[in-house]
Nucleic acid binder design. Structure first.
Length: 258
DNA sequence: ATGGCTTATGTGATAAGA
């Protein structure tokens, strides 16, 4: 099973990219973030036509997450959960489903704006709630995968210019500590399981020709429980869709299970 | 240089992203 995560920065604008990339990559389960549309605007029928079923939690203008699954894969309908249970939040940032016995979570972590702001405090509250919920999910589902836009670059090697970014949003010690706390639950960063070239990133600012300069950050991740990490044979960032016309500022991250 | 693009909303300027 090939699983992937992609922040599409508006599914309305990126609908054709998603369809093209699904077919080109052979992905079985695609976790989407930043749909930026309400549920009635989700292109469910269009994806169905191409052979994929979808589950999603959308809202107007901002956020919104989904899981797109190749038809034929077994999805437990009763397993679908939207948002972090017990964490009151109007922002649609989490959806989970059990697919072929694998607990899949698609998550859009808060951006946080800057340390010291209200949005940053919300990010830390959200991370704490996610941590506790993930712990309980892992206890129930040994095959567990947390995919999404984490809005955290875990280490300096995940940042094009660590000196310039030191202490700032996405790399601050508080955020990185929360990432480490997730890892401490028994999760593995699938990307770092394998030898990788240097300077691999998953997001590049639209401005300043950042993509051409490879001035990016690795903030989109696939974390796997032990049972899945053991059967994971590859994990890569696919930069190709970032070169397409009118691209998302994020590239998809893909992991092969089994 | 705290901007530089891109998107949504809505029809023009603002908010938000990272």
């Amino acid at each position: 099973m090939k699983i992937a995560t992609w922040n599409v920065n508006s599914l309305k604008v990126r609908q054709q990219h998603v369809i093209d990339w699904l077919e080109a990559s052979g992905t079985d389960v695609l976790c989407l973030q930043e749909l930026k549309l309400t549920d009635d605007k989700f292109p469910r029928a269009e994806l169905e036509e191409k052979g994929y079923r979808s589950w999603f939690a959308g809202q107007k203008t901002y956020n919104g997450v989904g899981i797109v699954v190749r038809a034929g894969l077994n999805v437990d309908e009763d397993s679908v959960v939207r948002n972090i249970p017990g964490f009151e939040d109007p922002q649609q940032r989490v959806i989970a489903a059990t697919i072929e016995g694998v607990r899949i979570v698609s998550a859009y972590f808060p951006n946080g704006q800057a340390p010291g702001t209200d949005k940053f405090a919300y990010k830390l509250r959200w991370l704490a709630a996610l941590h506790d919920w993930v712990a309980s999910e892992m206890a129930r589902s040994p095959k567990f995968a947390l995919l999404g836009d984490y809005n955290i670059a875990p280490e300096d090697r995940d940042v094009h210019d660590p000196k310039a970014w030191e202490g700032q949003n996405l790399v601050s010690p508080e955020e990185r500590a929360e990432f480490v706390r997730l890892i401490a639950l028994g999760l593995t960063d699938a990307f770092r399981q394998f030898e990788q070239p240097e300077k691999i990133y998953s997001w590049w600012d639209y401005r300043m020709m950042a993509f051409r300069r490879n001035a990016g950050m690795r903030i989109d991740h696939i974390l796997l429980s032990k049972a899945l990490a053991e059967i994971c044979t590859s994990c890569e960032v696919d930069k190709v869709p970032r070169k397409w016309e009118q691209p998302s500022d994020h590239a998809p991250v893909v992991a092969q299970l089994g």
